[in-house]
């Protein structure tokens, strides 16, 4: 019985390894690229609605305040991303 279970576990881990391998070969880059695009979109969105937090007034503050409660958790990360220094490698690899 234990041997049977062990065999099943071994098969599952091989299946999972193959799945991860295929994912790594075929989809990982695509997902990373999509997540990066998503991050840029998020930054753009935050800039448009909360731009005046960084001295770039885009949206009238009345409407920014309406959206503010929904973006509170993102504000810190967003400000850090936008304000951090960018070096040559950042530019080369689009970070």
């Amino acid at each position: 019985m234990d041997k049977k279970n062990e065999g099943k576990r071994g098969l599952d881990s091989i299946k999972s390894a193959i799945k991860d391998f295929v994912y790594g070969m075929a989809a990982h880059d695509m997902v990373t690229y999509s997540l990066r695009t998503r991050m840029h979109m998020e930054n753009l969105f935050m800039l448009i609605i909360m731009g005046d937090m960084l001295g770039i007034p885009v949206l009238p503050p009345y409407y920014s305040l309406r959206l503010l409660p929904h973006v509170v958790p993102h504000v810190k990360t967003w400000k850090r991303t936008l304000l951090r220094d960018r070096d040559v490698t950042d530019r080369m690899f689009g970070g």
Partner: peptide, 14 residues
């Protein structure tokens, strides 16, 4: 931010 946004002149217009 809430305080500074509310102090802008466009705020009372809006």
């Amino acid at each position: 931010y809430i305080k500074s946004a509310s102090a802008q002149p466009a705020m009372s217009e809006s």
